[in-house]
Each structure stands twice: as structure tokens, then as C-alpha cells.
Nucleic acid binder design. Structure first.
Lengths: 132, 132
DNA sequence: GATACTGGTTACCTCAACGATACCGGGATA
DNA sequence: TATCCCGGTATCGTTGAGGTAACCAGTATC
């Protein structure tokens, strides 16, 4: 829980953005990965999740808290400090995320090639979400 | 590829609707499961996917075709006949779907209980998609 | 007094997915 | 003549996730 998060742990250009699997909402899986090695603070999470706005991060964390995936602990200090930590349930998603990443590693190139070979039209917009 | 699809293979009331995992678009995983045992016709798919409109089914299938998940074969007969079949790539999603279902079987009750225990507010709408 | 830091909140807007409803072409069948 | 079957299209409307921008309270520091 010590070392800082790598600001580039999620490559925004990476084709994993086309991954056909989504865990929870758009940012949920990335939050889980950020919390994998210990509790993190709100601001700390914003670094690797480049581009996330505080509103959306709050929404995501509140929903995850509601679903028992994370706990929120506020310390009465100042400046204020709030820490988010994975629960066992939240941690159980890691196996699923690993499965999704394994599938992508093995099959995503074929999917992208199929899409490219399909030719001109971008077509309906299946599978365009950001991933990990 | 012979036996008809069970019209009730997807229970619309089942809490799996809350499953925090989504494969492709809303109907993609269900289509994959429908095609698991062999090619199916357009109208045949509409039966278990209760409530899907032809427009949305067409959209879903076209996107899956574009991504190399299914093949579309039109026979020049009449009444017209079109068959959709899983490709190897599409079939590879089955392992992922199984993993998602295994997770749900084991952990979904805990998630739903956490949500219930969280109390009154339905809160922001994470995790409300139909699943399998 | 002014500014900065943390952890947010509020109001507004956009856009794609999804759904409802209606219609169609062509051959076969009654 | 009329109707059915099949595999779709066409048009319209709704919804909600997600984004943008601005603001806030409380303390500490300059």
C-alpha cells in the first residue's frame, strides 16, 4: 500500500479499449486494479484514471460501496483524508478481470483483424468501451 | 443443431440481470449461448430472446459478424432462410461467459445482499443490465 | 488578505443504445 | 384475390451513462 500508482498503468490508446468485456461500469475494473495492492485515496485514484472527473469517480466509488466492492474510510484530519479499500467481494472480481485480460491477450487481435477486414464501414458501434 | 431453443432459457426476472459483467452489447452473450449448439435462424433466435425487436437483433448480429464472432449464410430459397453460426472466435467467448456465470453463482448473492443492506436509496444505477 | 489543498457537489449537456411501431418484397399457398 | 411466412428496413422517441464547467467548506500556509 506504499508505492505510488503508475500514472500510465492504463494506456488510453491501447486497443483494449475495444475489449468486448465490461466489469461493472466504465471505470469499475480500473478502480479494482488500482486498489489491488492496498487502500488508496481519492486524489491518488485520479492519477492513473486519467481524464476521470471527480463527479464520475465519486459516482463510481459510491456505487461500488453500495454493492459491497469497496469500503470508504474518512479520517477526521486536515486536509481531509479518505481511503478506499477493496473488500473480499471486490477482490473476487480480480479473477474475472484476469480472465477477461487473458481472453483479450489471446483473441483481441483476431477480433480487430476481423473488424479491419470487414472493410470500410465502421458499422454500428459495438464494443467501443475503454477497458484495461 | 436440431432441438429447438428453450423459450425460457433466459429468465427475465432472474437477478442475473444485476450481473456486473457484460460481454459485448446487451444481447451479445445471449446470442452466443443460443448459437452454442449449432446454427440458428433469425426467427429462431427471437424466441428465447423475448422482447428483442428485429431491428435490435439485426444490429446485434451485424456487429457480431463484423467482429468475426458469427457468420451469416443466406440461402436463396423461399420463404427466405438465413442461418447464423458461431465462429471459433465467437466460441472462444463461451469460456468467458462461463467464468462470469461462475462468479455470479458464487458472489452475486453477496452483492445483492450488500445492496439491500445498504438501505433505502437505490442510488446511482450501477449494474442493472440483463445478463444470462 | 490571498491562496492552496482535499474531497467532493451542483447544474447542464451530449450522444449512443435501446425500444415501439409500422412497413416491405417475393414467392407459396388457400 | 388474399393472406401467410421470412428476414429484415424505416422512422421516431426515450433513457441514462458519462462528460464539462463551475463552485464549496474548512484549515493551513504565505
Amino acid at each position: 500500500m506504499a508505492e505510488p500508482l503508475d500514472p500510465e498503468m492504463f494506456d488510453p490508446v491501447c486497443p483494449s479499449s475495444a475489449m468486448p468485456i465490461q466489469i461493472g461500469d466504465k471505470w469499475t475494473a480500473m478502480v479494482v486494479l488500482c486498489l489491488e495492492r492496498g487502500p488508496r485515496r481519492f486524489t491518488e485514484l485520479r492519477t492513473p484514471l486519467r481524464g476521470i472527473t471527480p463527479k464520475v469517480l465519486t459516482q463510481t466509488l459510491r456505487a461500488m460501496e453500495r454493492d459491497g466492492l469497496v469500503t470508504r474510510t474518512a479520517y477526521d484530519e486536515n486536509p481531509p483524508r479518505v481511503e478506499y479499500e477493496l473488500t473480499a467481494l471486490g477482490r473476487s472480481l480480480l479473477t474475472l478481470i484476469d480472465a477477461a485480460r487473458a481472453w483479450s491477450k489471446e483473441h483481441l487481435p483476431a477480433l480487430l483483424e476481423a473488424r479491419r477486414a470487414h472493410g470500410s464501414d465502421p458499422g454500428p458501434a459495438l464494443l467501443k468501451r475503454p477497458g484495461t
